[in-house]
């Protein structure tokens, strides 16, 4: 499959990157591992004038730790992060979501930053330009219809990051640099709730670091996919147990993960949470699995993940 024409640059610093982005007036794409952006470019879902490679920027690939936070450079690959001993020891659910991301070869290339900032997906959106032209452009492509839901008046594409859900349960924060300056926000604040443009990001903003509070907890991650060796989640659940309760996040459905907190993990509370998840999850026919199956699995995965996380405590 042939890529569209674009220029390529590999700046050495964040300042240089932002200068390039500004010079191209935003008609630029950032490239880290390329496991997501290159397929999108091949399908003409992104068509930048320039691809700016972030891999030469110093410091973005380091994992550091202080008393309060584990600080992960956004260019750290999923595989390196998975193999970092503290990840498994401290954040079991996060370790599992890293391990379940796609396949190992792609984990070695794909980065944690790219995984968090991946675009939403839909059975009728992630297609070749020829297919999409024949079908007619949908909301997410700038058209006026939804190709998944007849007469639907919004975009229903799904945010399919494996790791964002587990990072939400860990109350992770994200550090950004943009032409306007630096900021550090809670991961949940990046989601706009609109599948057409899923993130609240400034133009040219670069994700630099992920901060995870250094609180050891037990957790688990559950995911439904068609092929066990690869594939994005079609629905996923992450759990992190804290004190007597826990945080739960559900992704792969709609523009942003849902998140919940329960004060107790006794049978009744878990059942009530699973039931709530079942009613909250709004699945539509935009993946290879049926909406009713994905909806029912929300309930099953919540219970399964909490059960596994509890077994780990024993």
């Amino acid at each position: 499959m042939i890529l569209p024409k674009f220029a390529y640059a590999k700046p050495k610093s964040i300042d240089e990157t932002i200068e390039l982005y500004t010079r191209y007036e935003g008609r630029a794409c950032y490239l880290a591992g390329g496991t997501d952006i290159i397929p999108l470019a091949k399908q003409r879902l992104v068509a930048p004038d320039i691809v700016i490679d972030l891999k030469n920027i110093e410091g973005l690939k380091a994992i550091e730790k202080n008393d309060d936070f584990l600080i992960i450079g956004a260019n750290t690959t999923i595989f390196d992060l998975k193999k970092y001993p503290l990840t498994k020891e401290y954040f079991r659910g996060f370790y599992e979501s890293l391990d379940e991301t796609s396949c190992e070869t792609l984990q070695m290339r794909g980065t944690i930053g790219g995984n968090i900032l991946q675009n939403t997906r839909c059975l009728f959106y992630n297609k070749s330009i020829e297919w999409r032209t024949a079908r007619g452009f949908c909301f997410k492509m700038g058209g006026a219809v939804c190709n998944a839901v007849p007469k639907g008046n919004i975009c229903f594409s799904n945010y399919c990051s494996d790791n964002a859900v587990s990072l939400i349960t860990l109350s992770a924060e994200l550090g950004f640099v943009s032409p306007k300056g630096e900021r550090r926000i809670n991961i949940e604040e990046i989601f706009s709730g609109n599948s057409i443009k899923p993130f609240n990001l400034e133009p040219g903003e670069i994700l630099t670091r992920i901060y995870i509070p250094m609180k050891k907890n037990s957790g688990a991650y559950e995911k439904i996919r068609v092929r066990g060796s690869i594939d994005y989640p079609l629905i996923n659940v992450a759990v992190a147990l804290k004190d007597s309760g826990g945080d739960v996040s559900i992704g792969g459905v709609g523009p942003a993960p849902l998140s919940y907190h329960i004060d107790s993990v006794d049978e009744n509370s878990v059942e009530a949470l699973a039931q709530k998840a079942y009613s909250d999850v709004k699945t539509v026919a935009n993946t290879v699995l049926t909406p009713s199956y994905r909806k029912r699995m929300a309930k099953v995965l919540v219970k399964r993940a909490i059960k596994r996380a509890l077994q780990e405590v024993k």
């Binding site: 499959m1 390529y8 590999k10 490239l31 390329g34 496991t35 290159i38 397929p39 691809v51 490679d53 891999k55 070869t105 792609l106 070695m108 290339r109």
Partner: peptide, 11 residues
Amino acid sequence: PVRSCLILTAE
């Protein structure tokens, strides 16, 4: 191991 179809030669 990498997918060479996803890597730009420039990289």
